[in-house]
Structure formats: structure tokens, C-alpha cells
């Protein structure tokens, strides 16, 4: 039976919990793979190498930068899961500031803090076989990825906009009908367009879609009355350091470097 490992780096662990939240699908999953390393679920550890490693979290310390290389070395396939592992996560807000300022403001003895200046995705350190977006990831998409891995096929995870999901479920566009700024047009599908179905704009928990135009959307936000610093903040949340969002946010006042 193929061995599955789940690794944690800098994160809230929510994406690992998504695996445990598979509920009815979890037992069939254990018929298909041996959960060989998953400290969140069990203290039992089976020795590597591992057929599939799911990596949660971003790289924020020199120790983690070294550890991710070891994980890669013992993994046949490596899939990074969640906003942290695929784009640096919320903690990548540090990338736009000086980490030394944060350390001295927060800690009595900042010299004890051994951290990197930036929070970076796994793919910035080692080759990654697939990146699954989301903050947190979607349970069904995770199962799709694992199922595809079991069949050695490419996961069918659409990379188009959230707008497709709104239209598929019959949600009326909140930006057009209510004037609510919405990140849906630039955001990767996967959540099923939850927020617009409750009359709220998309917060881009799933990061950039693959044919996006952030310049145009930022222009529409301004047209809808959003102040410049708010435009910067809107692009600087879960996927702040994803390159298209980082570039856009830095073009607005208050956006920092």
C-alpha cells in the first residue's frame, strides 16, 4: 500500500485538518493509502520514503528551509496544500516590511528569534509536483488530488475564476448588482463561490486565477469608491505574496514596497 505523509511548516494547521475533516471519505482513504506520517492525527510513524507527501505551511526559518529539502528527499510526489505552502500565506505580509522592526516591537529579547526575512512558498525551495490552493483547501479538491495521485493522473482542478462558480450556481454578481467590490474575477476557483452567495464580495482565499487582470479590477474598485489604501489591503490578504497580487498591491498608496 502506498504511503502518505503530511508535513507541517508555518501555518495554522487548518489545511491538515481538512484531511481529518474528510469524515465519511476518510475510512475509504485508509483502505487506499497507509497514513505513514501525520503527527496531527497519530503518534505512530512509519519510516520513509513516502509515495505522497502533503506539505502544509510556508518556509519562515532557516531550520525549515533545510527541513523542506529533507522532506523532498524522502518523497516520491510532493503536493503543497493551502495558501501558506503555495504562496507564503498571511505571514508573508512580513515580506512587505522589515522583519527586524516586527521582532523588536513584539519580543522582549528579539535576539532569541531566528527567522527569515520572508515567508515563502514550498516551491521557492524545492520542486513541487502540484500546488493545491485555498485558505483553507477544499476537502473535495484534496480528495481529487489524492485520487489522481493514486491513478498517476493529473488532478482535474480548474484554474479559472470564481465567477465561473457563481454563474454555475446561479448567484447574481454582487459587484454588478450591489456595487460590492469582489475579488472573484481575479481569484482561483475551488471554494464554490461561497461568499458571493451570501451577498459578500470574494476575499480571494484561493489566490490568483490563471488568466487574471488585477490592473483592471483595481480600477473598478476605485470606480466603486474604494480608497487607494483599501485597494492595497484587498490584494494583500491570504495570498499577499502571490506575485500578481504583490505587484498590484504595491501600486497603491499605503501598499508599501
Amino acid at each position: 500500500m502506498r504511503k502518505l505523509a503530511v508535513w507541517k511548516f508555518a501555518s495554522c494547521d487548518g489545511c491538515q485538518l481538512t484531511l481529518l475533516n474528510c469524515e465519511d471519505d476518510l475510512l475509504p482513504l485508509t483502505d487506499q493509502v497507509e497514513i505513514a506520517y501525520f503527527p496531527q492525527a497519530t503518534r505512530a510513524v512509519a519510516a520513509g520514503p513516502y509515495d505522497l507527501s502533503l506539505v502544509d505551511g510556508s518556509i519562515t526559518t532557516p531550520a525549515d528551509a533545510e527541513r523542506i529539502r529533507q522532506v523532498r528527499a524522502v518523497s516520491r510526489r510532493l503536493v503543497s496544500i493551502g495558501a501558506c505552502a503555495t504562496a507564503g500565506g498571511i505571514q508573508a505580509l512580513r515580506n512587505f516590511s522589515d522583519i527586524g522592526d516586527f521582532s523588536s516591537a513584539v519580543y522582549a529579547r528579539p535576539e532569541y528569534i531566528d527567522t527569515l526575512a520572508t515567508s515563502t512558498p514550498v516551491a521557492a525551495h524545492v520542486p513541487v509536483d502540484f500546488e493545491l490552493n485555498g485558505c483553507p483547501i477544499d476537502k473535495d479538491q484534496l480528495l481529487t488530488v489524492i485520487t489522481a495521485f493514486l491513478r498517476d493522473s493529473k488532478p482535474d482542478i480548474p484554474s479559472h475564476s470564481v465567477c465561473v462558480e457563481c454563474k454555475q450556481r446561479g448567484t447574481v454578481c454582487v459587484m454588478v448588482a450591489d456595487g460590492i467590490p469582489c475579488m472573484g474575477p481575479v481569484t482561483h476557483a475551488g471554494c464554490g463561490a461561497i461568499c458571493p452567495s451570501y451577498g459578500r464580495g470574494c476575499y480571494s482565499c484561493f489566490g490568483p486565477q490563471d488568466t487574471l487582470n488585477t490592473r483592471s479590477l483595481a480600477g473598478r474598485f476605485a470606480f466603486l469608491g474604494m480608497p487607494e489604501p483599501a485597494v492595497a489591503r484587498t490584494f494583500r490578504t491570504f495570498y499577499a505574496a502571490a506575485p500578481p497580487f504583490a505587484t498590484e498591491s504595491s501600486m497603491h498608496s499605503g501598499g508599501g514596497r
Binding site: D25, P28, L29, D31, Q32, L143, T144, I146, T147, L150, R151, D156, H160, S161, C163, V164, K167, Q168, C173, G184, P185, V186, T211, L212, N213, R215, S216, L217, G219
Partner: peptide, 27 residues
């Protein structure tokens, strides 16, 4: 420069008919 490539025009168009086929296996 203005197009968001978000697909809304095509999905609200009453004549656009493009569809994709998905095969979804269970675990």
C-alpha cells in the same frame, strides 16, 4: 487591458454553448 478574462460575458450570453466534460472517479 480592461478585460478580466473572468468568463462572465460568455456565461450570461444566451447563445454561448461551450461546455467541458469531467470524469470524476471516487477514491
Amino acid at each position: 487591458s480592461r478585460c478580466l478574462s473572468c468568463t462572465n460575458c460568455t456565461l450570461v450570453c444566451p447563445t454561448c454553448f461551450c461546455a467541458s466534460l469531467e470524469t470524476v472517479p471516487d477514491l
